[in-house]
């Protein structure tokens, strides 16, 4: 069997600056998915920016700095409608939590990553609900549906990240 060969084996890898910027750009673009022209009366769309961030963090450990969650969360807050600071706080906590999990669980499969990302995104959504929406609002079932949709979307984000990371080249 012929081993798979890259389409352009002698192509120059991306310059390091651009290779470092691509993960940031992809998370920013995913956060901006709220610009799609849909007027939602119920919140069911998964937070794409958070999923991309978690996928980068779990699949390509050194693609984002440990402090990258805060500025990326700031941008997400600007476009998501949450009170400013919500994603800055929750995404930073996610990064610290993943750091702690990684120290205890260095050998992981994709299923572990999915579990970690699912737990992180569920906690972020629940935290965002507690921060943004009054206690009495009956949004529990909707929140559960959104959490399920988000967990199911993580493999898509992981695929996208893997594809971008492969294009980015081995030296990034």
């Amino acid at each position: 069997m012929i081993p798979p060969v890259a389409a352009k084996p002698f192509a120059e890898p991306l310059p390091p600056g651009r290779a470092r910027a691509i993960p940031w750009a992809s998370v920013v673009a995913a956060s901006a998915i709220t610009a799609v022209p849909v007027i939602a009366t119920v919140p069911l769309m998964p937070p794409a920016g958070l999923l991309m961030l978690l996928a980068w963090r779990l699949l390509a450990r050194f693609s984002l700095r440990p402090w990258a969650a805060a500025p990326l969360g700031f941008w997400d807050d600007l476009v998501s409608g949450q009170p400013l600071g919500s994603a800055v706080l929750l995404w930073s906590l996610c990064f610290l939590a993943i750091e702690a999990v990684e120290a205890r669980m260095p050998f992981r499969t994709f299923w572990h990553d999915w579990l970690i990302a699912g737990a992180a995104s569920a906690l972020c959504l629940i935290g965002g609900r507690l921060i943004a929406v009054p206690w009495a609002a009956p949004v529990g079932p909707l929140l559960a549906a959104q959490v399920v949709a988000t967990v199911l979307c993580f493999p898509l984000a992981a695929r996208a990240v893997a594809w971008i990371d492969r294009r980015r080249g081995p030296h990034a």
Binding site: P66, W67, G73, P83, V88, S92, L96, E99
Partner: peptide, 23 residues
Amino acid sequence: GYVLAVAGVVVGAALLVLSAFDP
């Protein structure tokens, strides 16, 4: 890097408090 990561949490909490008091 880790100091900045923890600072992100603190800044986020501070921003949240500010936005809660003055949306």
